[in-house]
Write a protein that binds this DNA or RNA. Structure first.
Length: 157
DNA sequence: GCCAACGTTGGC
DNA sequence: GCCAACGTTGGC
């Protein structure tokens, strides 16, 4: 029995890892998350098959660039043990890792980025967390209604 | 590049 | 356990 699938929004700076990078590599470990709320979503609430809106932050324009999906449950994030990584965490123990990552797979790139301005101005998306001021979470849940609306916007021109 | 908003750290 | 100081995020 699988429970109902969930919907997520995950942010990445396209200069670091864009939807095109994901398309080329097909899957990627969502490493380097160092926020407890985002970690808890990955660790506790994400399941294989969940749908992901792929959001480009610090971009021109910032916005939703395509779709991805969860293809692997949370596992320890190897960067926390890598002394050469800027995400190295000396306090994290191998037998009880602090940070985890899910594995994300490419689904599709939208024909255009749905910009944050457009998300904010769409009446159907009122209250969507990513449009709220000060919302910095890199992994956040999305309602089915908001997810479906974003798909509609991606298909329209 | 600026800076508001937020999360984390650490002194007390 | 409070909260000031600091670091980070990310829109603009």
């Amino acid at each position: 029995m699988s429970r109902r699938m969930r919907f997520w929004l995950m942010k990445s700076e396209p200069d670091v890892f864009s939807i095109d990078d994901l398309k080329r590599e097909k899957t990627t470990g969502w490493d380097s998350v160092r926020n407890y709320t985002a970690r808890n979503f990955m660790r506790d609430d994400m399941s294989v098959g969940d749908a992901v809106l792929y959001y480009h932050s610090n971009a021109e324009p910032s916005g939703i660039a395509g779709l991805a999906k969860v293809v692997g449950l949370a596992i320890p994030d190897p960067t926390q043990f890598d002394k050469k990584s800027e995400y190295y965490d000396a306090a994290s123990k191998k037998d009880s890792p602090t940070w985890v990552m899910v594995t994300v797979g490419f689904v599709k790139k939208f024909p255009r980025v749905i910009s944050l301005a457009e998300l904010k101005s769409d009446k159907h998306l009122a209250g969507m967390p990513v449009t709220q001021k000060g919302q910095r979470l890199s992994v956040m849940p999305v309602s089915k209604e908001h997810y479906d609306r974003v798909l509609e916007l991606s298909e329209g021109c």
